[in-house]
Amino acid sequence: MKEKVTTLDKALDLVKDGMLLAVGGNAMHRNPTLFSLGLTLKGAKNLKVCGAAPGIGADILCATGQADRAYFGFFGLENEAGLAPGMRKAMQGENPTAYATEGS
């Protein structure tokens, strides 16, 4: 087995333009939230995000315009945390910056 421990900074640099990222967790639960926030401080763009129920981790990347497509069954933050604000900002209205592909 090879040791894989690295810094947040170096791990963030693995993400390149145009990549499709599966974002773990569900709604507000066990999302890689700080990792996604880290990506907003890096330049990666034209990202695509996917998950059965992406939440805050994917919402962050829609909010900044870094993700231009999301594949999902449910994309929200659930109940008290409400609808996904970044996803809605990116996908609603006349000039969307991101598009949805709903898988059921």
Partner: peptide, 20 residues
């Protein structure tokens, strides 16, 4: 709402598997 799927007035959360 909105003219079509990609330009909605309200983007909902999706079916969460209801279609399946």
């Amino acid at each position: 709402g909105g003219p079509d799927y990609d330009h909605s007035a309200l983007r909902g959360p999706g079916g969460a598997g209801t279609a399946s």
